[in-house]
């Protein structure tokens, strides 16, 4: 297991900034894809709304509440996926999401860090049907 000895490394300024000031926060009217899920361990909740133009993510918004890790991770994710193709997002690996997050996450907090991508992929899968 990852020993993330210093919490200063976990709660870096940019993580706290995304937590306090989440990017792409809110909801979309008539989204092309939407999904909401929670992490039963801690009650973190995230909803993702997606607008799709052609085969690309045209806009994405997220709403939710939870720990700094889950909310900052979702915020960073929305920035990263805007403009990408749906197929690219569907193939996004957990490792890539964690790399984009840029901090080392202990095993017990992985579900927090990956809740956003899980919800986003569920939204896209639901649209595909």
């Amino acid at each position: 297991m990852n020993d993330f000895g210093g919490v200063d490394d976990l709660y870096r300024d940019f993580i706290l900034d995304h937590y306090r000031h989440p990017r792409n926060a809110g909801t979309l009217e008539n989204p092309d894809a939407t999904f909401e899920d929670n992490n039963p361990l801690c009650g973190d909740r995230i909803r993702m709304d997606v607008r799709i133009a052609g085969d690309r993510i045209d806009d994405v918004r997220f709403a939710g509440r939870g720990c700094a890790i889950s909310q900052a991770s979702a915020s960073l994710l929305t920035e990263a996926v805007k403009g990408k193709t749906v197929a690219e997002v569907e193939q996004l690996s957990d490792e890539a999401v964690l790399e984009n997050l840029g901090i080392s996450i202990s095993a017990v907090r992985l579900k927090c860090a990956l809740l956003g991508i899980k919800v986003l992929k569920s939204a896209l899968a639901l649209k595909r049907g």
């Binding site: 919490v7 801690c42 973190d44 890790i69 927090c112």
Partner: peptide, 12 residues
């Protein structure tokens, strides 16, 4: 502060 963030910092 979310409970999980507080618990992580206390754990440290």
């Amino acid at each position: 502060i979310h409970a999980h963030d507080l618990a992580t910092i206390l754990d440290s």
